[in-house]
Design a protein around this nucleic acid. Structure first.
Lengths: 163, 163
DNA sequence: GCTTCTATACTTAGCAG
DNA sequence: TCTGCTAAGTATAGAAG
């Protein structure tokens, strides 16, 4: 049981590579969470492996409803919605995008469709070397072109999502 | 020099919190890179702290040009561009989005503007509990509404970016 | 494949310059 | 501050069930 030093190279043996992945993924997730609580910072990690059908994400996707609830519950947020500076403009846009998203998800079929699309696209982004910096840039585009989205004008309501 | 066990709670002392952050961030980045090379998987991490003006991203944003070059160099990608199935449709859209992005970045002023916007928005997303899963969902929206973007039709050319 | 075990490798808290 | 040190604490490679 002599433990070797880590040889920093691709593990060719399939089963030990998978085992290694699962162990280290767990460790990474824990460290991510520790850093976040110890230092009070926001952090995210995503791992896209052939061992899982969905990308592994930290923090977990738990409760999109909770996220939406936060929007309602945070008073500063409500205040911001009534401000007229750029910041509040952006906040409102975000709220509306999220609302739009909620509505989209109500159509379960469409949801599955887009999920499949996402998997395809994300796979390509990663395969072709787009990192999260680049995905962020794509988000920039979203912001920029957001006025093209046919936003609904009605109030921001909170009904349960379908997932 | 008796070292305590980690007490998993917010470090109230400012300087030691910052020191802790920098050390652990470094460790996390290394582990991220190790996992990626050992297991050959795609992974990303982003940390948004008050200690740095820009979010800390792994892998680094090095060479968007390189990313664009990859698009040109990977033969399968070129083939896909000529297919007519959904997959190729999506690939083409990605290429065009990236192209659009490149053009957008040519306007340096606009670049800075959007960068500022991104920082504001990303901050809010994270502050209000949106994780990368959610940001991915927003990306779904981007895909969905992508037909609203006024795409340029000319060939995909490769000129240096301004950053 | 999966757990669980545990010796060893690695990480990092606290200190010093 | 930052850098480097080093021992205490933690993660994990490899084996066993």
């Amino acid at each position: 049981m002599i433990r070797k030093k880590v040889k920093l190279a691709y593990i060719t043996n399939d089963s030990s590579r998978k085992a290694n992945y699962k162990k280290r993924k767990k460790g990474l997730m824990r460290k991510m969470s520790e850093l976040s609580t110890l230092c009070g910072i926001s952090a995210c990690a995503i791992m896209y492996s052939p061992y899982e059908s969905q990308p592994e994400v930290w923090p977990s996707r738990i409760g999109f409803q909770q996220v939406l609830s936060k929007f309602k519950m945070i008073p500063e947020m409500e205040e911001r919605k009534n401000l007229v500076n750029q910041e509040s403009f952006l906040s409102q846009r975000i709220v509306k995008v999220v609302e739009q998203l909620r509505k989209d998800y109500k159509d379960k079929r469409e949801k599955e469709m887009t999920q499949v699309m996402f998997n395809n696209i994300y796979d390509k982004w990663v395969v072709h070397g787009l990192n999260f910096g680049d995905i962020n840039d794509l988000n920039l585009l979203l912001v920029e072109k957001i006025s093209n989205i046919d936003m609904r004008k009605d109030a921001f309501t909170m009904t349960p999502l379908l997932f």
